[in-house]
């Protein structure tokens, strides 16, 4: 991620480089904890998905703002065979293998 502007080149002192290294390690631990918590939430999330499907096939799906369209149950997606429900993707499309790629 970069905001693509507003950076001035400079030397980074050794103690700051050490601090950066320490923060990278701390973030790895933070990410792993989140990843585990989200795996543990999978069963609850399956229920939330079903409730979501129930709502968009009865009350409607928000297409734009408050504009809604009722989804035909026949048009609901099918969970791909062997798909592991995953909601945390470490670097998104960069460096992350999708379930498709794992097959």
């Amino acid at each position: 991620m970069s905001f693509k502007d507003l950076f001035i080149e400079h030397d980074v002192p050794p103690e700051v480089q050490e601090w950066i290294k320490g923060e990278v390690e701390a973030q790895e631990a933070r990410y792993s904890k989140i990843e585990k918590e989200m795996i543990d939430l999978a069963a609850t999330r399956e229920k939330w998905y079903q409730e979501f499907f129930d709502r968009i096939t009865t009350l409607g799906y928000n297409t734009d703002g408050d504009d809604k369209m009722t989804i035909n149950p026949a048009d609901l997606p099918v969970k791909p065979e062997g798909c592991v429900d995953q909601v945390v993707w470490k670097y998104g499309v960069d460096g992350e293998e999708s379930p498709d790629a794992q097959k």
Binding site: M1, K4, C83, V93, E96
Partner: peptide
């Protein structure tokens, strides 16, 4: 970090690559 566009859908199993 750049232009915000809302891609809406209703497939909870789509991946970032998809």
């Amino acid at each position: 970090d750049s232009k915000l566009f809302n891609h809406f859908h209703y497939n909870p199993w789509s991946t970032p690559v998809q």
